[in-house]
Amino acid sequence: MKSTFFRYISAVLLVLLLPQLANAADVVIITHPATTISAGDVKDIFLGEKQFSGGTKLIPVDNASMQDSFLTKYLDMTKSKYSSSWTKKSFRDGLTPPAIKSGDAEVIDYIKRTPGSVGYVSSAPSGVNVVK
């Protein structure tokens, strides 16, 4: 009786958690193979606060097909606020907002050929660094 109860509870929890786990796995941060960053740097990189990793200049690139998920998960902000934040940053500090690529394929291609680049995709590809 007790084990049946726990099996039900476990099944319910699994059903409830699966979408969360799926969402958490949705956004994969990748970098050029010669570029090393930590997951804790992602927010600062995409807000223009961190521009270097060692001696390498970092180049963040947005992925239009996943931007909402990425902004929610890593920056905790809406697209509107992100855009507004970059307008202020660019206007005051002379920085250029991240280029926007249409989807995973474009991002991966850009990351592979651009030293210092940092992007995000829906699944981990080969030939790039995956940030954990």
Binding site: I59, T87, S90, F91, P97, A99, T114, P115, G116
Partner: peptide, 10 residues
Amino acid sequence: QAEIEGVPLH
């Protein structure tokens, strides 16, 4: 050229 694509106008 490797870092940016053109000079954005704001």
